[in-house]
């Protein structure tokens, strides 16, 4: 790999750099009535602990599929994948995943608090502990005070924050986010991106984040994975060296623009390949 390896803030980097996700030669082919669809082909990727990895690419490039394979929601048809050294299925059984979907997917019959405690309930954690953790998680996403509200009483951005709180509540090793802010307007999105970064800096979680916004990907990530469609594959992996507690202002710096340019170039190359 030809990666730009610049480590500025060594002190802020996690001490250990163990691979949380290790993918080798992974491929996934869907058999459909119109013939096979090559959703993923020859994917190699390592996600280290504490990484914030963004997957970017045009629709149909397999970025969501890759996330779903990591979460054991799809089975690969070839190659190897290990999460924390075990299979995705085993990792799922170990409750390693906090998944945030494109839509909030809150259960309408449960209050915000009880939505956040849902995974804890399934994991059979005691009631006092559940309520305490829900309270903490809601505080992280600045939703304290909304515990007793129902999802439909909250705005779209607040609902998505509640779903992030739900993913955080059980302290999963890996936070998987599939275009979580895709349906929100730019201002709310900026705000949530900022909050997400703070959260990531504070909790030191490993995050895999799917997006199709270049500024979002560059702003949030330590590692940007550029993907291209038909067949879905990785065409570039870019590591960034912004400090963990970066602000929105970095979007005006030359480094930011340079990385954004490289991402765009990668996306363009993937596209021309397609024609």
């Amino acid at each position: 790999m030809t990666l730009k390896q610049v480590v500025n803030n060594v002190a802020e980097m996690p001490a250990s750099k163990d691979a949380v996700v290790d993918i080798k030669n992974l491929s996934l082919t869907f058999q459909t009535a119109d013939g096979p669809v090559y959703a993923l082909s020859d994917v190699d990727l390592t996600i280290n602990e504490g990484d914030f990895v963004s997957f970017i690419g045009p629709s149909g490039c397999g970025k969501t599929t890759l996330l779903r394979v990591i979460a054991d929601l799809e089975k690969p048809t070839g190659g190897d994948i290990s999460i924390n050294g075990v299979s995705p299925e085993q990792a799922r059984e170990n409750r390693a995943y906090g998944y945030v979907f494109q839509a909030p997917a809150l259960l309408p019959w449960r209050s915000i608090e009880r939505n956040v405690t849902l995974p804890l309930e399934i994991m059979e954690i005691s009631k006092e502990e559940r309520i305490k953790r829900a309270h903490d998680a809601l505080k992280l996403v600045e939703l304290n005070g909304f515990e007793k509200k129902f999802p439909w009483q909250l705005s779209g951005g607040m609902q998505q924050r509640a779903s992030i709180a739900r993913a955080l509540s059980f302290d999963a090793d890996l936070l998987l986010m599939d275009e979580p802010f895709g349906a929100l307007d730019e201002i709310v999105r900026d705000h949530l991106n900022e909050q997400l970064l703070k959260l990531w800096a504070r909790t030191n979680k490993t995050v895999a984040f799917v997006t199709h916004s270049i500024p979002e990907a560059v702003y949030l990530s330590t590692k940007i994975v550029v993907m291209s469609p038909r067949p879905g594959r990785i065409i570039d992996v870019i590591e960034t060296d912004f400090p963990r507690d970066r602000s929105l202002d970095i979007r005006e710096t030359p480094e930011f623009l340079e990385i954004a340019h490289r991402v765009r170039e990668g996306l363009r190359a993937g596209h021309s390949n397609d024609e």
Partner: peptide, 14 residues
């Protein structure tokens, strides 16, 4: 129940 909600439950190994 929607597909998303089922997937959600699956990620919790419910």
């Amino acid at each position: 129940a929607g597909k998303l909600e089922r997937d959600l439950m699956a990620t919790y190994a419910s």
